[in-house]
Design a protein around this nucleic acid. Structure first.
Length: 830
DNA sequence: ATCATAACGCTTTTT
DNA sequence: GCGTTATGAT
């Protein structure tokens, strides 16, 4: 046998044996798993088994190295070895160690694989699935978010650029707090320079790798005078973060990219380490994140990016779809694999999603298909108002549970967090177990911020921001005047506040407060010593005690809830201490700085989840309710009139629709309370884009006033307003309009008002109570009832209130409190 | 220094 | 409509 022939047969046999590990995958998925070398763009539609592919790809790398994608033979392979392989091909069962060794080509050590995801949730899922597949060795894989990967790199190598490894991370609210101070001190008007706007300008600058000085230089040359002001704020903001040894979220990425760009030895060290780099959700990466990925993968050039251009929904914060659209241009030898078979949803759901997204121009083009059958059609429900919309959703879920589904099978998705309120009330009235993801995050709560500020202050003596938060909390008689003087000295001497406080006795103006300041200083010092000698959880208890924070809370209902949260934080600490290799205060603070509420959502929990569509990305649910399908809400009023933003909104809709596995219900309300006023909106244009073959709509929808055609008058108005804002954004001066003039006048309201029948409209608020039997109103303690979802129970208490009653029912040990008007429709008296 | 009331502005979306 | 912040009174 000549060498050529041997090589060919060897490679073929090897591929076949390797493929045995990936039998459950379809052709395209297998190709993606086997193509380990060089740049690879994986266009993975929603529900196409993308994570499965990632897991298997990593498994392949660890077991077989680059063998599946190489023509190369292992050292010393000859006819004897070929015979062994070909024999193994004919046999079934596990590969023998000998065969496995022959199949492998430089198996990859786990820590040489870097799999970057976008959210902690995705990273955690990846980690746990990798561990399930590969065992404990999987823990060494760098499966984490951009931000946490950067933290790790900076902690290890940041010293090279003069960054102390003990740096602190500022989250968005910390950044905002710093910025507010800065703006105040620079006498910048909060109206013309809202902190948010300034921060996002800085964020954009950082995405373009512009330092404060670069930005200032550019502002000098630019035409927008506001940028000069913003540049000043940027400079001062940076100065403060530097003084506090703090990095904000954007800095984490920016500093890492600078580090890798400017320090060759550091760059080489990491490029040597990461032989394979995977980036998930590539469509959501920003310019600088793309640079980061390119640097990390710069050693071997093995970069695999996974994404779906149709699911790009973070353009607003710098994500650029160019990264995915331009991948092939950038990496000339890139391979592209498309995953279009959907394993998640039934036919009507996919059909609806496809017909919505095809209205977008400028996409790679992709059509999801399924072999799962058509399934149920979508339904559109039009409610009288937002309360009724919420009640409808709650009712449908109760019915679903009564027919055998679990609470956890349902998700309610909305465009903005503010929409969750109404739903929560409805769910509470019916005692439906639910969970709101996102919104006010756990770590944004006041008491949690306070306690973590103590932790930060103990860990980082230069962290003035956190110090200011706690120095007089609980009250220690250190008032505003003392702080003002402290701040003045700290600013002129460029020393941290705590340093200045330590020398309080030396400054005449601080004499009066010196005693109190010393006492506080001693407290912090004592805590610092304790933090070094005690296990973390015990230290936490000691901190709560010594600072007197817990004691100062009191025992009102509110304080009780706060205590609960503080204890919840303790369980976080205990968890962390148990799981981490070498737990430390610094490590814990890193963990929570990058943590969001999303991460605490446990998969097994049996309750309905409510969240924004953005939060729902990457998740799936048997039954999904998509509420508020109205123009002005979804699509958001801010996007109407801007084609690019509308396309992003449409992608958001695509994401929403593709979350559903089997059942998908859309709802809209004729009238709803929004921003404190009642408004009526047209039905969402996205609903219009779903053909009748996929969706059941109420036949009278049009006659009853929710129209499908965009109102030309309104469109015109929205467009003009939009253009005005854009012109303003470009720097044209504001013609002083009073805020009321900027408000939308009549068009919206009058437009829908015309279409709505006037006085002869059916009565509003046909609540489910209308269906409740009169016997229910006579319920008394001791009565037996049956509830559609909860089953049989005994009434233990009845509190009547005007037009309604709150009944407490014992369902075999669990107490539920039900509002009769809302829950009555699901109760029968036995 | 702490509490109460008034005023404001906010509603896109997250690390 | 709600939650946060500014202001003023005690």
């Amino acid at each position: 046998m000549d060498r050529k022939e041997l090589e060919k047969r060897f490679v073929t046999a090897r591929r076949e044996l390797i493929l045995r590990d990936f039998q459950g995958l379809n052709d395209m998925q297998q190709r993606a798993v086997m193509a380990t070398e060089g740049p690879l763009l994986l266009l993975a539609g929603a529900g196409s088994g993308k994570t499965t592919v990632l897991i298997n790809r990593v498994a392949n790398l660890i077991r077989f190295g680059r063998a599946s994608d190489s023509e190369e033979l292992p050292e010393g392979a000859g006819e004897a070895e070929l015979a062994v392989l070909e024999k193994a091909v004919r046999e079934t069962g596990e590969l023998s160690p000998e065969v496995e060794a022959l199949c492998a080509l430089d198996p990859v050590e786990p820590w040489r694989i870097c799999a970057i995801t976008f959210t902690n949730k995705a990273a955690d899922e990846l980690k746990s699935r990798l561990e399930a597949r590969l065992g404990p060795g999987a823990q060494d894989i760098w499966a984490m978010t951009f931000h946490s990967a950067c933290v790790r790199i900076l902690r290890r190598s940041g010293e090279a650029m003069g960054l102390p490894s003990s740096f602190t991370i500022y989250d968005a609210s910390d950044s905002a707090a710093v910025m507010k101070r800065v703006l105040k001190e620079l006498n910048m008007d909060e109206k013309t320079f809202p902190p948010k706007v300034v921060l996002s300008a800085i964020s954009r600058a950082k995405d373009n790798m512009l330092s404060a000085e670069d930005f200032a230089a550019q502002a000098e040359k630019g035409w927008d005078p506001r940028n000069k002001q913003i540049a000043k704020a940027y400079i001062e903001y940076s100065r403060r973060l530097l003084a506090a040894d703090a990095l904000d979220f954007d800095d984490l990425i920016l500093f890492t990219v600078r580090l890798l760009r400017d320090y060759p030895e550091v760059r080489e060290r990491w490029q040597r380490q990461f032989q394979y780099v995977l980036v998930d959700e590539y469509q959501d990466t920003s310019k600088i994140q793309y640079k980061l990925a390119a640097y990390l993968a710069g050693g071997r050039g093995n970069i695999c990016v996974v994404g779906d251009d149709d699911q790009s929904i973070y353009r607003f914060r710098g994500a650029t779809i160019e990264n995915i659209l331009g991948f092939e241009k950038l990496y000339k030898n890139a391979r592209v694999i498309k995953l279009e078979q959907n394993y998640r949803s039934t036919g009507h759901i996919l059909g609806a999603a496809n017909s919505v997204i095809k209205n977008n121009l400028g996409r790679k083009g992709k059509n999801l298909w399924t072999s799962a059958g058509d399934g149920e059609k979508l339904t559109l429900h039009i409610a009288e108002n937002d309360d009724e919309e919420a009640a409808f959703v709650a009712g449908k879920i109760v019915e679903g549970v009564s027919s055998g589904m679990r609470w956890g099978d349902f998700a309610v998705l909305y465009r903005m967090n503010a929409q969750s309120n109404r739903l929560e009330y409805a769910f509470k009235r019916m005692s439906i177990p639910y969970r709101v993801v996102g919104g006010t995050r756990f770590f944004d709560r006041m008491e949690i911020k306070d306690v973590t500020s103590y932790l930060c202050a103990v860990q980082n003596p230069a962290d003035d921001l956190r110090l200011l938060r706690i120095i007089n909390n609980p009250p220690r008689g250190i008032g505003e005047t003392t702080l003002e003087r402290l701040r003045a000295i700290s600013a002129t001497e460029r020393r941290p506040l705590l340093d200045v406080a330590a020398d309080a006795a030396l400054y005449p103006e601080l004499k009066a407060a010196a005693g109190k300041l010393m006492k506080f200083l001693e407290l912090i010092m004592e805590l610092r010593t304790l933090s070094e000698s005690m296990p973390l959880p015990e230290f936490y208890d000691a901190l709560l005690d010594k600072t007197g924070y817990l004691a100062a809370l009191g025992d009102s209902d509110e304080a009780l809830a706060r205590r609960d949260n503080i204890m919840e934080l303790k369980s976080n600490i205990v968890n962390y201490a148990a799981g981490a290799e070498s737990p430390s205060l610094a490590g814990f603070l890193d963990e929570i700085a990058l943590y969001t509420d999303l991460d605490s959502m446990e998969a097994g929990e049996n309750s309905v989840v409510m969240m924004t569509i953005h939060s729902a990305k990457g998740l799936e649910f048997p039954s999904v309710f998509l509420v508020g399908m109205e123009d002005g809400i979804f699509p958001s009023s801010r996007t109407i009139g801007d084609e690019e933003e509308m396309e992003e909104e449409r992608r958001l809709c695509y994401v929403a629709l593709t979350r559903a596995k089997r059942s998908l219900t859309l709802t809209a309300a004729r009238r709803r309370m929004l921003f404190g006023r009642t408004s009526s909106n047209l039905i969402s244009r996205f609903v219009e884009e779903i053909p009748e073959e996929h969706i059941d709509k109420p036949a009278d929808a049009v006659r009853q006033g929710l129209r499908y055609e965009p109102d030309p008058e309104y469109m015109d108005y929205a467009l003009r307003e939009r253009q005005f804002e854009r012109r303003e954004a470009r720097g044209a001066y504001r013609e002083h309009l009073s805020p009321n003039d900027a408000r939308r006048p009549g068009p919206i309201r009058s437009a829908s008002g015309v279409a709505r029948p006037g006085p002869s409209r059916p009565p509003v608020g046909k609540t489910p109570a209308a269906k409740a039997s009169p016997a229910l109103l006579e319920l008394r303690p001791g009565d037996a009832i049956r509830h559609k979802a909860f089953g049989q129970g005994t009434v233990t208490d009845v509190k009547t209130m005007p037009g309604d009653a709150l009944v407490t029912v014992d369902f075999g040990g669990t107490q539920k409190r039900l509002m009769l008007r809302a829950a009555g429709a699901f109760i029968t008296k036995l």
